[in-house]
Amino acid sequence: KKVTINGVEIKFNNPEEAVKFALELAKRLNLRIEFHGDQIKIE
């Protein structure tokens, strides 16, 4: 399963991993996060 985070394609074994990764990243950098299907936007 491929997920695009800020235009960067990252391959994950499952979608939950991708979501956890994105949330952790957003929390660490104190950023806002948006989900659009397989696209995750962090700003």
Rank of each mutant, 00 (worst) to 15 (best):
L29I: 05
I40M: 04
V19G: 02
D38Q: 08
K20C: 15
F12K: 00
N6D: 06
N14H: 07
V19L: 14
F21H: 03
K41M: 12
L23S: 04
E43I: 15
F21M: 06
N6V: 13
G7I: 14
L23P: 00
N14W: 11
K1Y: 15
N30F: 10
I40V: 06
A26V: 09
G7P: 05
K41L: 13
I5N: 01
L29R: 01
I42T: 01
K1D: 07
L25Y: 07
K20I: 09
F21S: 05
I5V: 08
N6Y: 11
L25P: 00
G7C: 14
K2M: 13
F21Y: 09
E43Q: 12
D38G: 07
I10Y: 12
L25F: 06
I10G: 00
L29G: 06
E9G: 05
E34A: 05
E17Q: 09
L29V: 04
E17F: 08
F21W: 13
L29H: 09
F35P: 00
N30D: 06
K11P: 05
L31P: 00
L25T: 01
L31Q: 00
F35K: 02
K11T: 12
F35E: 02
R32F: 09
G37R: 04
I40E: 01
V8T: 07
A22C: 12
T4V: 14
V19H: 06
A22E: 01
E24G: 05
F12I: 03
A26C: 13
N30Q: 09
F21P: 00
A18P: 02
L25S: 00
I40Q: 00
A22I: 15
L25N: 00
K41G: 02
F35M: 06
I33S: 00
A22N: 00
R28E: 10
K27V: 05
K27P: 03
E43F: 15
N6C: 15
A26I: 08
L23E: 11
K11H: 14
R28C: 15
E9D: 07
R28S: 11
P15H: 13
L31Y: 03
N14E: 01
K27W: 05
I42E: 00
R28M: 10
K41H: 08
N30V: 06
I40A: 01
R32C: 15
L29E: 05
I33F: 03
F21E: 03
E34M: 08
Q39L: 13
P15C: 15
N30A: 06
F21D: 01
G7Y: 09
Q39A: 10
A26E: 02
L25M: 07
E17C: 15
L31K: 00
